[in-house]
Nucleic acid binder design. Sequence first.
DNA 1: CATGAGCGA
Length: 327
Amino acid sequence: MHVAAEYRQASLYVGDLHADVSEDLLFKKFSAVRPVLSICICRDLVTCRSLGYAYVNFLQLEDAQKALDTMNFDPIKGKSICLMWSQRDAYLRTSGIGNVFIKNLDKSIDNKTLYEHFSSFGKILSSKVMSDDHGSRCYAFVHFQNQTATDRAIQEMNGALLKDCRLFVGRFKSHKDREAKLQNKASEFTNVYIKNLGDDMDDERLRQVFSKYGKTLSVKVMTDSSGKSKGFLSFDSHEAAKKAAEEMNGKDINGQLLFVGRAQKKAERQAELKQMSEQLKQERFWQCRGAKLYIKNLDETTDDEKLRREFSSFGSISRVKVTQEER
DNA sequence: CATGAGCGA
């Protein structure tokens, strides 16, 4: 539908729409508040399924403003809609400037409460309390229109109490930024994980064994369900932890090879295991598929190892065999 | 403990 230029600025973007919401339903909902010029739910061209967002065009700017002020986060078909001014400039939406991350929210803080609290610092482009089936996940985002509002919100709300919860409020960091920081932190680890400890190990003995590398802050030996013992040990410096790992890892203790390495967070370890299992699955898949290449005209100096090296950048290789021609 | 996702006719 064509909307004349003079009405374009009275357009709201409606996000987080339930897939079953129809134009009709949206029209009823919005025109109950202010007169609506037109509605457009964006749909897949082929399947006509809703893409989960729509435009609501009003005749007057004040009408759009009124809808934005009173209807944001209203549930439709059980799902909270997310209202914003239509902003076609993708950079302004996603550059991350003015975007604030909030964590340690009280479970009872909902979208509207959050919005009300933070709109005192300046104009909000969008905000959202992250949630799942169990309700709030206790963290949120608020995207301010300008940097001063962002700075003030962080200045005043970081560390402040909201419903007995001390908030963390900081600038939003993209996945990439966060990853880099975590990597950095991981490279300066002070906690070590120790595996294959043998049977007769306890906290005190483990501390003694490792104390020569530096001051230990905490030691914990645990036994898993199969009776194997493992432990965590934290040092007061990265140097000590690093040295302990370097010197003790792989050490033969009563015929068992000790493992000593950087202690990972549970989520990190699980992610690693998952990745390993997926790689294994992938390898098996290709093995079954028998993705075999036949290569001829190799020169005489090419052996299994060289051929493997040459092809290793294309993916994991399960088997390489160079056959020698009879002379 | 936590760092999103979104722009048409």
